[in-house]
Design a protein around this nucleic acid. Structure first.
Lengths: 200, 200
DNA sequence: CCTATTATGTGAGCACGCTCACAATGCAGC
DNA sequence: GCTGCATTGTGAGCGTGCTCACATAATAGG
């Protein structure tokens, strides 16, 4: 069961490579599953032996890009929580950058604000990993008491809003997106501080 | 050209009624355009003479529900801006309530956070009308200086996040959604206040 | 080695949203 | 009324994403 396993992995890679290539050049929606199969040199049926849906392919591409978890810059101390969260979000977006143009299907499903909406648990890790780090950073700034489930829900909504905006950002270096991110996080953090004061 | 016009309007209504009925009982995705056509007593081709896409049908249902603009409670004065915005959003959701279960396609397209993503201008009014009232209320509380385009973008993101959550809210009376709305607006308004202070 | 069993590949075919060439219908000008 | 034009209705058919009954290939047991 070694030849088989290798062949299987090779087929999987061929699909992902072909898909990535086509998505980049032709776009997600304009690319047909038949196109991907042909480019990978397999039958359409085979493609669906490896991925349950077309979306699962693009989601896998995105998730795989997060496999090597950005070394967390050791513990590069950021002055403020804003700065730390900004750096964190920006790092996530750096990983997502190659997929920016066809991120929409991933946002709609795998990263949906609704936990219950997760069709598969493929994208689950994107959300939980990101949020875990948010919790960690918040704790470092001793504001974690304010991080209720609702607060996390609000954070994720804001982050998705930023990503969604980013998808179509026409400004030269997407600086509009960074501005939106900055404002969103400033609002979020100052809200956390407010909640904390009350509870003290 | 009277008989014709009447007939046309009648067909349009038959489609909308049939669609609303089927969406409610069967759900948006499980309902086929062929089903709608059959229920309306027309051919599938005819259906697409009236609505360009299946989504346009559900969007039309939602937009039509906003046709009779909620009388604005005269000018029922709310103590705080939070309360006013909460009442405004809650009023919007009261209108949307019949469509809660199949609101997702509308959120994804017509109400998308990306203005550029609007395929047609059908849902445009949903966004602009809602935001106009937000501007108006904010002005009444003399905080409109802080209402930058970015701030409006943030507001709309938060509102969509609440609606998206609402879509799947399993809590008995959707009180979780109201809590989320409350928190989101509190955060937003206190952020506006902060921005205002600086600019004064 | 040969056979039985399991894993993988295949493409015709399904149901869907939507289109288009054409048929039926309604109405104006005579 | 009849004819000609415009408007509305029709359903076979297209291209999707995806499925399934089956073919093929690879491994394990003897």
């Amino acid at each position: 069961m070694r030849v088989t396993a290798e062949a299987k992995e090779s087929t999987r890679r061929k699909i992902l490579d072909a898909a990535q290539d086509l998505f980049r050049t032709t776009g997600f929606e304009a690319t047909t599953t038949r196109d991907i199969a042909k480019a990978a040199g397999i039958a359409t049926g085979t493609l669906f032996n490896y991925f349950p849906t077309k979306e699962a392919i693009v989601t896998t591409l995105v998730v795989d890009s997060h496999a090597r978890p950005l070394r967390r810059l050791a513990n590069e101390q950021h002055e403020s929580l804003e700065e730390a969260l900004f750096a964190h979000a920006a790092a996530g977006m750096r990983l997502l950058k190659p997929y920016r143009k066809y991120l929409t299907p991933v946002l709609d499903t795998a990263m949906s604000p609704l936990v219950e909406a997760q069709r598969d648990d493929l994208g689950q890790s994107l959300r939980t990993d990101h949020l875990e780090r948010v919790v960690e950073l918040t704790r470092q700034h001793e504001l974690d008491a304010a991080l209720t489930p609702v607060a996390l829900q609000v954070y994720w909504t804001l982050y998705l809003g930023v990503l969604s905006f980013w998808t179509n950002d026409k400004s030269p270096k997407q600086e509009d997106t960074l501005a939106l991110l900055d404002q969103s996080l400033a609002m979020f953090v100052s809200w956390l501080r407010g909640g904390e004061e009350k509870s003290n």
